[in-house]
């Protein structure tokens, strides 16, 4: 279980997170929605300990991430996988090397086993046969899917997805949604998905949370969320469903 307790963060005097509270249950899919620029990515970076909060804490199974030193933090990050909003692929490595990277770093698998896993993960994200391409030769959507393959390569306990389907066509969006669902069902992976896409959020989420002005203003199952009394939530749902 990940607990976010009263989290504050500002940049050069601009408050981004302003007392955020959220519980992310183990083995479930939590979707975080909210207008762009409201601090969703900033929240995700705190969950994996890339940034330290100004105030408040992130607790992973009762361990306060801010209290860890760099070696302990490095150790605890083995339990995570993360897909960045802009993929953050290593541009000096080709697609194969990118996906193989976490396997090479953290397992003693033979090259043969690594190859099998890479091929499997690439086919899961619909990119078979692109192993030799460099990230600079890929479209934004393809890069993102390579990033996804890299994030799931080690099958970590917790996967953070920063807008996994933004910029993908509807068919690919559904395929990725199904992939996230399937990983959670088969391997009980704890997933945190940032999304703009309301219909897709309702389809995959066990829990939906909405960020607004630096706070979580609503959290609940899709049904609870749909019937929220909050005006901001209803407006966001209306606009999102109209668009999607």
């Amino acid at each position: 279980m990940i607990e976010i307790v009263d989290l504050y963060k500002s940049f050069n005097g601009t408050a981004v997170l302003q007392g955020m509270n959220l519980v992310i249950p183990t083995g479930k899919i939590t979707v975080i929605i909210g207008p762009s620029g409201c601090g969703k990515t900033v929240l995700l970076r705190h969950i994996i300990g890339l940034w330290k909060p100004d105030r408040g804490k992130v607790m992973l199974d009762k361990v306060n991430l801010s209290a860890l030193n760099r070696f302990q933090l490095n150790e605890i990050r083995r339990r995570f996988g993360m897909l960045f909003q802009h993929a953050a692929l290593f541009d000096s490595m080709n697609v194969y090397e990118n996906v193989a990277f976490p396997l090479r770093e953290h397992t003693k698998k033979s090259e043969r086993e690594i190859q099998n896993i890479v091929v499997e993960k690439l086919s899961l994200v619909g990119l078979s046969g692109n192993e030799k391409k460099m990230p600079s030769d890929l479209s934004g959507g393809m890069r993102k899917r390579v990033g996804l393959a890299r994030a799931i390569a080690l099958q970590p306990e917790i996967i953070l997805y920063d807008e996994p389907t933004t910029g993908l066509d509807p068919i690919m969006t559904e395929a990725i949604d199904n992939l996230i669902l399937e990983m959670q069902r088969k391997l009980s992976i704890t997933s945190v998905v940032i999304s703009h896409d309301i219909p897709s959020a309702f389809r995959i989420a066990d829990q939906i949370s909405m960020v607004y002005k630096g706070k979580i203003i609503e959290t609940g199952t899709p049904d609870v969320f749909r019937n929220s009394k909050k005006e901001e939530v209803q407006e966001f749902i209306r606009k999102g469903e109209g668009k999607g």
């Binding site: 150790e75 990050r77 993360m82 770093e105």
Partner: peptide, 18 residues
Amino acid sequence: GTMRVTEQVDALYTMAVD
């Protein structure tokens, strides 16, 4: 520096590679 601004350095952190 390029790896820094394109979040590749952060990606290393998240993959538990310092």
